Amino acid sequence: MKTLTRAAALALFALPISSTFASAGPIDSACMRAGNGANRATCGCIQQVADMTLRGGDQRRAAKFFLNPDQAQETRVSKRDSDNAFWARYKQFGEAAQAYCG
């Protein structure tokens, strides 16, 4: 919970300042390719939250969910410890992204 609170506090200060800079990371790119009606500002915001809450490997893994939601479901119900740990981090990212970009 402290990590989420810390990320939220950072987002309050970082998002307005950094919104003028392009941020084309794996989440932003996948979001734009997904064709779900999201715009550059929304996808960029989600990427900024990802930069604050997820490591690079986690971002690349999460980006795959935009184009293949079934893969997210498979990860969520997995019995593997590594999948469960990733899902906990991904869930925190999703909650933070919803709070600041939704």
Rank of each mutant, 00 (worst) to 15 (best):
M1W: 13
M1I: 06
T3K: 11
R6C: 06
R6Y: 04
R6P: 00
A8G: 02
A8I: 04
L12H: 08
F13Q: 12
F13L: 11
L15V: 12
L15G: 00
S18F: 11
S18N: 07
S18I: 07
F21M: 12
F21N: 08
A22E: 07
A22I: 13
S23A: 07
A24E: 13
A24S: 11
A24D: 12
G25N: 02
P26S: 11
D28V: 07
S29T: 14
A30G: 02
A30Q: 05
A30F: 04
A30C: 00
C31P: 01
M32E: 08
G35R: 05
G35K: 03
N36C: 09
G37N: 10
N39F: 15
N39A: 14
C43L: 11
C43W: 04
C43P: 04
G44D: 02
G44P: 03
G44M: 02
G44Y: 06
C45G: 03
C45R: 00
I46K: 03
I46E: 07
A50P: 00
A50N: 04
A50Q: 00
A50G: 03
D51S: 10
D51A: 07
D51T: 12
D51N: 13
M52H: 02
T53Y: 03
R55I: 13
R55H: 12
G56E: 13
G56A: 13
G57V: 06
D58T: 10
Q59N: 10
Q59I: 12
Q59A: 13
R61L: 15
A62P: 03
K64Y: 08
K64C: 10
F65M: 07
L67I: 05
Q73Y: 05
Q73R: 07
E74F: 13
E74K: 10
E74Y: 04
R76K: 11
R76S: 06
V77A: 11
S78K: 12
S78N: 06
K79V: 15
S82W: 13
D83F: 01
N84C: 06
A88V: 03
A88E: 01
A88Y: 02
A88S: 11
R89M: 07
R89K: 11
Y90P: 04
Q92A: 14
F93D: 03
F93N: 00
G94M: 09
G94P: 02
E95S: 08
E95W: 07
A96S: 07
A97D: 07
Q98R: 11
A99G: 09
Y100F: 15
Y100W: 15
C101A: 00
G102R: 04
